[in-house]
Design a binder for these strands. Structure first.
Lengths: 327, 327
DNA sequence: TTGAAAGCGCTAACAA
DNA sequence: TTGTTAGCGCTTTCAA
């Protein structure tokens, strides 16, 4: 049997309430506290979090819901969350919903009652679905914005702006854009970033279609891009960009000589592709850490009022997949 | 306030114990059960797991400890665990220790008291450290074997065998091997797989050194391999193989014409490299799922006796990074 | 400053 | 088959 407060109390010759106070920072005489702490340590006492949570109403745990841990983007987010959680001694339940919106809503329903709060990555669900399933007081949205809910997002629009300006500076005048899933919030954001440039004289933005946000989606997009008059392409994300790179290579289109390619998110993959990918860096892990702070009310300057919104900066990382436009 | 058994009992006009029984599959009349379930659903009742765990002694949660979620190998493992956990309605605490052995032991200490069991991925700790920190009755090791502990591992030795035979069939007679971190169990396994071939007449296995199990480690290894007389190389894992591919390309060594490259693990990266990587596939997610079953005593044929050991088969996946040896 | 006692929400004896 | 009751381990009133 595990050691309980009872055991500690008995061994220390005090009451259970004194033990509790001594260990949680209540009003106890220094001498008593010292004695109790010593005994607790000697017996290897570890408080039962479930029992504590039952009475305090706080479990000391929170939930993180992501569509796919295999996607390096979400792996990075999870990494940021768990790292911060470790620092503040907080447990993290992770639920991978396998891109299934139904599983996502179930996970929200289960976790909202068994944690102090939920960090939710939900790129595909509608605003309404999210609003219905999640409690705005105990949920923080990661990389997704819904009116009325607290969220931590990256400045996607500015990232697109930086990417386009980079391509303009290299002399590109016809830029293809491969968008992600139609329902995706992140994809809509990218499109609205592009909107700024649609009336730019001497610049053509060419939407070549929506694909799955995967390597295979990128392979598919490769042919679409080559069929267009574009000399550069903005891919939905790095996975798509990597698939694109493959298909372009297979068809003999040299990157960046014949075609420049820009990814998005700057996942670790970006530095490993051939050629290494120019990509818009998103602070994925920082978003996770900040979300956790918001949830626990630990955020310093940022007030965790409901509906608060933290916007993190994006940065274009230039690698070898972009170059001067062919003449 | 949240709905409790009390609320459901009152609304359904029965006692709390009847509600509890109706919801957990106890002896209740079908009519009562139906009525209770209906009321519970109507009120949106969700049982408080902490309270339940307090009395049953089972929390319904388990812990998964991994060195790095960003490593696609562990992301896959985590995916397998969470998928199975969802199916059996079990919560999963994930702790990413950031490759820090101290954090790993701390995680074990915390989780062992707040979960029903731990799935531990610990490639670097020593057997002794693991034996000291973890309880063999409630811990299952994933992709690591320690005498006296239950574990789920892949047949690494056989994977190496398949890889070497493949290269032999292609005419390679001098095969370089890039090993992983010296303390790593997985690296030792690979080496013992290679041992079978050291006395094979007409075949030379050339150890070119240990590197970090990362892309950068592979870049470093690239030069070591080129400095050897090898015509093929076995990399510690796919990350290392990808770095190798990069370095070989940068130095003008065409793969597979000049040099064949074989990775290990078959993470998603393998299919995305240039050229796509021949790699030994390890059932990463299945190992996670089986580990969970073992922990929960749900494993069908496999008895979860302490010290049980499940060995999963490995399969060589041939892609474009291996070819006929240069003459 | 300390102790006794009352629960948190739930399940499992034990009765009925 | 159902209801009553006693806790699980802990914190927190309320008295002393």
């Amino acid at each position: 049997m595990r050691t309980t407060v009872q055991d500690v109390a008995r061994a220390a010759g005090v009451s259970v309430s004194t033990v509790s106070r001594a260990l949680t920072g209540g009003a106890v005489s220094p001498a008593t506290r010292e004695a109790v702490v010593a005994v607790a340590h000697r017996l290897g006492y570890q408080p039962n979090r479930a029992a504590r949570g039952l009475i305090t109403g706080r479990t000391g745990n929170l939930g993180l819901i992501v569509p796919d841990l295999r996607n390096p983007f979400f792996a990075d987010v999870a990494k940021g969350v768990t790292a911060r959680a470790r620092a503040v001694d907080c447990g993290v339940f992770i639920s991978d919903t396998d891109e299934d919106p139904v599983a996502e809503l179930e996970a929200v329903a289960t976790l909202r009652h068994n944690t102090d709060g939920i960090l939710l990555c939900s790129p595909r669900s509608t605003d309404t679905q999210i609003l219905e399933a999640a409690d705005p007081r105990t949920t923080v949205l990661l990389h997704r914005r819904v009116p009325g809910m607290t969220s931590v997002v990256a400045d996607i629009v500015d990232g697109i702006r930086q990417a386009v300006r980079h391509l303009l500076a290299l002399g590109h005048r016809r830029i293809a854009f491969v968008s992600g899933p139609d329902g995706s919030w992140a994809s809509r954001q990218r499109i609205s970033g592009l909107d700024e440039f649609t009336r730019e004289p001497g610049l053509e933005i060419l939407p070549v279609g929506s694909v799955a946000p995967t390597f295979d989606g990128g392979v598919l997009a490769g042919d679409l891009v080559l069929a267009s008059p574009a000399t550069a392409v903005l891919a939905y994300n790095d996975l798509v960009a990597t698939g694109l790179l493959h298909r372009l290579a297979a068809r003999g289109a040299v990157v960046p000589d014949r075609m420049s390619v820009v990814g998005y998110d700057d996942v670790s993959l970006a530095g490993m592709s051939h050629p290494p990918l120019t990509s818009v860096a998103v602070p994925k892990d920082r978003a996770g850490a900040i979300g956790l702070d918001l949830l626990l009310g630990r955020a310093g300057t940022v007030t965790a009022e409901h509906g608060a919104e933290v916007i993190l900066p994006t940065t274009l990382v230039v690698r070898a997949s972009t170059g001067v436009a062919p003449t």
